[in-house]
């Protein structure tokens, strides 16, 4: 990959050799490390509460909805698709890349919609977010926290997709797509861990 793009460089002194894209990716990585602490703390908190709680899922509450498996499938697919968007961009197949980005946007939205469906199903089964129970509370807290980050990712992905249709990216210059890919892989990984923890603990 060409790391030394000669596009207008950022206003740094002339001695600078690293490219903007490299710096941006590094910044994104730090941001994701910070976010992973947020999720790690949440999951550890979940485990601690789970272990200490005298009351967990009382019999009147439904088990975890099976729709979560569908969510998992959608999100993994999204992550794969966005990877191909990046690969195709690098190979200068910009048309294919656009389609992949569009597909990723659709899948990401689908994930969010499916999460809503899961919540609604639970609410219908006597487990609303205000249910006075730690099993219920922690479930909504974890999935809600993740969904909030999915919303942020969708906004960025939407902008990137639109820009790609306007021809803003090239095989050499596509920071937006790189960031989107990093972020969605991250969301995917977090979700898989979160989901496994919830399954094992219930």
């Amino acid at each position: 990959m060409n790391s030394e793009d000669d596009r207008e460089t950022r206003p740094v002194p002339s001695g600078m050799t690293r490219s903007e894209a490299n710096t941006g990716r590094f910044g994104m990585a730090i941001f994701l490390i910070s976010l992973s602490i947020l999720f790690a703390a949440s999951i550890i908190g979940y485990l601690v509460v789970r272990m200490r709680a005298q009351l967990w899922r009382t019999t009147n509450l439904p088990p975890l909805p099976s729709g979560l498996w569908l969510s998992t499938g959608i999100l993994v697919a999204c992550s794969v698709v966005i990877h191909y968007a990046l690969v195709q961009t690098r190979r200068n197949n910009l048309g294919a890349a656009r389609k992949f980005l569009l597909a990723a946007s659709v899948l990401g939205t689908g994930f969010l919609v499916n999460q809503f469906v899961n919540w609604l199903a639970l609410t219908a089964a006597q487990m609303p977010p205000t249910a006075r129970n730690l099993y219920a509370f922690t479930f909504y807290m974890l999935t809600g926290l993740h969904a909030a980050h999915v919303i942020g990712g969708l906004v960025q992905l939407g902008v990137v997709t639109r820009r790609s249709f306007r021809g803003a990216y090239t095989a050499q210059y596509h920071p937006g797509i790189t960031y989107a890919a990093m972020y969605w892989h991250f969301l995917d990984a977090v979700w898989v861990v979160m989901f496994l923890v919830m399954i094992v603990q219930n």
Partner: peptide
């Protein structure tokens, strides 16, 4: 590394 924990 620490501030996200305050956030949650």
């Amino acid at each position: 590394l620490a501030t996200p924990v305050l956030g949650i």
